[in-house]
């Protein structure tokens, strides 16, 4: 499956995901202006930044939901930027993603949501996939009685759990989290964060998250990168975030209205 990996020299420092000079614009509006980022295997990187700084677009370019205008996305040493068709499918199987609003399929019961990637993506039999789904639901703390409910019957926190179960059911190498705690109360947010940490460790995956919730950052990150105006302006271990010496980072983590970051409130 991954011939390229055996031919290529092992990447230095075991870089799992790399973004090189990533650019993306929508019309005249430049959203990503040369993103450079390296993520080590089995580490947890959290990208922080205000609304509209390009976090979501970066994540979508990384997984292939959007095609960047320039630059490269390199996964396991393979340039995946412009892959299509079967090659894209093969790379997509390495990924799991938890969406901001969970994005559960509301026409399907919970267990089919969790097993979706197994049934449709991998062609697993429904009966076997159901067992696997119930097993995965248990990992995120949900009992088998939830399996036959529909997403609309669940609370926000439970939907996030099901979304997490769906993201990990096919044992991905890389899991992306799009604002995992948005819309949850602080206690539920902490619970989901802990769940993220434990499941990512359990699956042995690399985690890349975007958020602006600083409490969440401190709980789930090994490393933190800050994005501002479509560029990465700081990247370092989470332990250094309080002494980054970067005025933009300082302003963001303390949530000050005054500072070098000028919020553009005229737009939108």
């Amino acid at each position: 499956m991954s011939e390229k990996q055996t031919h290529a020299a092992p990447p230095p420092d075991d870089i799992h995901v790399e973004l090189k000079g990533l650019r993306k614009a929508f019309g005249d509006k430049v959203v990503l202006d040369g993103i450079d980022l390296k993520v080590r295997r089995r580490s947890s990187l959290v990208v922080i930044g205000g609304s509209g700084t390009g976090k979501s677009v970066m994540l979508k370019c990384l997984i292939g939901l959007l095609e960047p205008d320039g630059g490269q996305v390199i996964i396991d040493g393979e340039d995946t930027t412009h892959l299509r068709g079967r090659a894209r499918d093969r790379v997509m199987r390495k990924f799991g993603m938890l969406f901001q609003s969970a994005a559960l399929f509301d026409s399907l019961p919970v267990w089919e949501n969790v097993a979706f990637g197994l049934i449709q993506g991998r062609g697993m039999r429904r009966r076997q996939a159901r067992e696997k789904a119930i097993e995965t639901l248990a990992k995120v703390g949900l009992g088998p009685e939830v399996a036959d409910l529909y997403p609309a019957e669940l609370s926000g926190g439970m939907q996030k759990r099901v979304g997490l179960a769906r993201a990990i059911a096919h044992q991905p190498d890389i899991i992306l989290f799009d604002e995992p705690t948005t819309g949850l109360d602080p206690i539920m947010a902490a619970i989901i964060d802990e769940l993220i940490v434990s499941t990512v460790r359990d699956v042995g995956a690399t985690a890349i998250s975007i958020t602006h919730d600083m409490a969440s950052v401190r709980r789930i990150a090994d490393e933190v990168a800050m994005i501002y105006k479509g560029r990465i302006i700081w990247h370092g271990p989470v332990s250094e975030i309080d002494h980054s010496g970067n005025p933009y980072v300082d302003q963001f983590i303390h949530g000050r209205a005054e500072g070098p970051i000028k919020m553009d409130v005229s737009q939108k």
């Binding site: 939901l65 969406f99 994005a103 559960l104 399929f105 026409s107 990637g117 449709q120 993506g121």
Partner: peptide, 25 residues
């Protein structure tokens, strides 16, 4: 209405991340 809701709630994106082509599915 169904596909539009799936689009705005990112369910179509979620399909793609689960290796399912939304045109096909």
């Amino acid at each position: 209405a169904e596909l539009g809701t799936m689009r705005v709630t990112e369910q179509i994106d979620a399909l793609v991340t689960l290796s399912t082509n939304p045109y096909r599915y």
